[in-house]
Design a protein around this nucleic acid. Structure first.
Length: 295
DNA sequence: CGCTTTTGACCTGCGC
DNA sequence: GCGCAGGTCAAAAGCG
């Protein structure tokens, strides 16, 4: 959750700005509908801002509490650095991504690891599904599976097999806190184009960013079905964003398009307005054509 | 037959 | 230096 979500919402508002509608023949009905939707979007934007403020205050309280507990001399767990901050705390981190201390990926990275881009995706799945498969559009080859100490669920290791030279790896493990969530950690950057990346886009998300997601090193987005992305980089700034692998983007775009299409098609007023606009347009076109032929 | 998955063994880093 | 634990390798098995 971040202010950029609100920004994205604003951007979406711009896309359906009634001012863009220059065609007078679409009628006032469409204008009214667009105005109504704009107002609705405005309300949602305000709600997002409000939620963001609440989130910030809660985060501040959490940081204070963590500070106090560490000052109280609570025993530190003698653990290898890798695990705690990843799979075990994946859900918490996604809820509080700024408290996740792996901004450089160094808290769990090992020297043998390739690349410096680390992203994390949480996907909701059925707990009875033990396949540990996270569909993200790429082709993966499993090369190992291991049961880790902190998590009874086995961790699966995958390499990108779409291109022989692609260095990207991913680790998939069910979250210890929430068996409904499977956490996938991606390492490295794909050395090939996204095999499923459509040429036609929605006009956003071209830079591997999720629409409505926040910009920055620790992006998180969550919804009931969509993947939850928590991207961490050892680099910072625009390069880091640029090098972010395209995690679940095709799936996410598909989901987004589907949701938008559903919500729009369910709105009878909207479909009626569109139909009216199209028929008016066709009529206009036919009339002008017949006018030209007769004259 | 070729590709993928499984799985035990081995390698390597980290903490003590 | 030793032991632990995560990560990787590679042979065997499975599958279409």
């Amino acid at each position: 959750m971040d202010s950029t979500m609100a920004d994205k919402s604003l951007n979406l508002n711009l896309n359906i700005n009634p001012q863009d509608n220059n065609d007078e023949t679409t009628g006032s009905f469409v204008d009214e509908e667009l105005n109504r939707m704009s107002a609705e979007n405005k309300k949602l934007t305000e709600m997002l801002c409000f939620l963001h403020e609440n989130y910030k205050s809660l985060q501040g309280q959490l940081v204070d509490l963590m500070h106090k507990s560490s000052e109280n001399g609570e025993p530190k767990l003698k653990k290898r650095k890798s695990e705690d901050e990843n799979y075990g705390g994946a859900i918490a981190n996604n809820g509080n991504h700024e408290t996740c201390s792996n901004s450089d990926g160094g808290s769990w990275k090992r020297p043998r690891e390739i690349g410096n881009t680390v992203s994390r995706v949480c996907v909701k799945t059925d707990p009875s599904d033990t396949s540990l498969i996270v569909r993200d559009g790429y082709q993966w080859r499993k090369y190992g599976q291991k049961v880790t100490r902190d998590n009874p669920s086995p961790r699966a290791y995958y390499k990108c097999s779409f291109a022989p030279t692609c260095p990207v790896k991913k680790k998939v493990q069910r979250s210890v806190e929430d068996p409904w969530v499977v956490v996938a950690i991606y390492e490295g950057e794909h050395s090939h184009p996204d095999p499923t990346q459509p040429h036609v886009s929605l006009g956003f998300n071209q830079g591997h960013k999720i629409p409505g997601s926040i910009s920055g090193p620790n992006a998180t987005i969550s919804s009931s079905q969509s993947p939850i992305l928590d991207s961490t980089q050892s680099e910072s700034g625009s390069d880091a964003e640029k090098s972010n692998p395209r995690i679940d983007m095709p799936a996410f775009q598909e989901l987004l398009v589907e949701k938008l299409a559903n919500s729009l098609t369910r709105n009878h007023n909207f479909t009626t307005a569109v139909a009216a606009a199209i028929s008016t347009k066709i009529l206009d076109h036919d009339l002008s054509e017949s006018w030209e032929t007769t004259s």
